[in-house]
Nucleic acid binder design. Structure first.
Lengths: 168, 168
DNA sequence: AGAATACGTCAGCTTTGTTGACATTCCAAG
DNA sequence: CTTGGAATGTCAACAAAGCTGACGTATTCT
């Protein structure tokens, strides 16, 4: 099929042509557009963007997280995140409570309304992901995740692992 | 390992928990940041952004392509693409020639300078991709591509296939 | 000749990133 | 205990890159 090198031992050499790598980057590009397309539609109906989705997603996954922690995960400046967070608080999707131990911190939670939107967004995104997983099969899914994980920056992988562990 | 359903026939049922799907979306998110990180650094040094990268990438892959065709691939408005293209032409990275058959069209080519930058960008991006491929192995790579392709929109897959065929 | 297509451009708006300045809170050294 | 510095978060202003709408020009198709 592909001309990736293989040996009887399972220890492969992987001769990668420029062509194979180019197709990989293009697959990433096109797939990422599909990946965000469905949530984007829902968001734009309500006047939100992808930045709001990211905030909602990770607050949902780590209720009570601080702004600072979220900054590390999202990799943006606090000023940029603050704008998004402010509108979500104003609209009553996110709750912002002063830190109990350290009063400089703010703990972030989704309200009921926020949880409802999160649900709608992740449902839309998961439908596509689920369809892709089914079409490709379990072995492909395992490979998919393996390559993605290997593609992350060190720092990003730490965040990823932290979230992963918390869930299991 | 994962609790993806499997059967002896190879026809799998794939029970997908919300948790598995959530981790998939997060893997996509973190991996895409890594995927663009290296080119982004090079681009910002020269005052360019990701939009310039995309234009350069696809002009390189389809020399002589028209503006209209590029619009379809990139999925942006002509005004948005035009801004990027203009700066690339002004800086002497892209050549813009009147169509031979249809004089309304403009054919786009990379100049030597443009090709040099494309090389630097794709080298940076490919290094990471190559490392990820090696770490994950050939089987994982095949699965990776399968899932990505299944995740694309119909229209995007057509563009993807068109580029793919041209190369083989 | 007139309609449709391909491309370029002007003007103005939105989202989301950036830096700079500043208030509040905590902590540790003196 | 006070004071100075580090950490956390907010406000203001600006830039990149997307968008819509309107319009002009050249070319092709009917």
């Amino acid at each position: 099929m592909a001309q990736s090198g293989q040996s009887t031992t399972g220890q492969s050499l992987l001769f990668l042509t420029d062509e194979q790598l180019r197709k990989g980057t293009e697959a990433m590009f096109f797939a990422y557009r599909g990946f965000t397309a469905d949530p984007d539609r829902i968001l734009s109906e309500r006047g939100y963007g992808r930045a709001h989705h990211r905030a909602i997603h990770f607050i949902h996954g780590s209720p009570g997280t601080t702004v600072n922690n979220l900054l590390g995960i999202l990799g943006v400046t606090k000023q940029s995140l603050n704008r998004v967070l402010r509108s979500l608080v104003e609209d009553g999707l996110v709750l912002n409570t002063v830190g109990t131990k350290d009063k400089r911190e703010r703990h972030l939670y989704l309200t009921e309304t926020g949880t409802t939107l999160e649900r709608a967004l992740s449902d839309a995104q998961r439908d596509r992901m689920r369809a892709a997983y089914r079409a490709a099969g379990p072995a492909a899914v395992a490979g998919f995740r393996q390559v993605l994980e290997a593609m992350m920056d060190e720092e990003m992988r730490h965040h990823y692992d932290a979230l992963k562990d918390k869930a299991e």
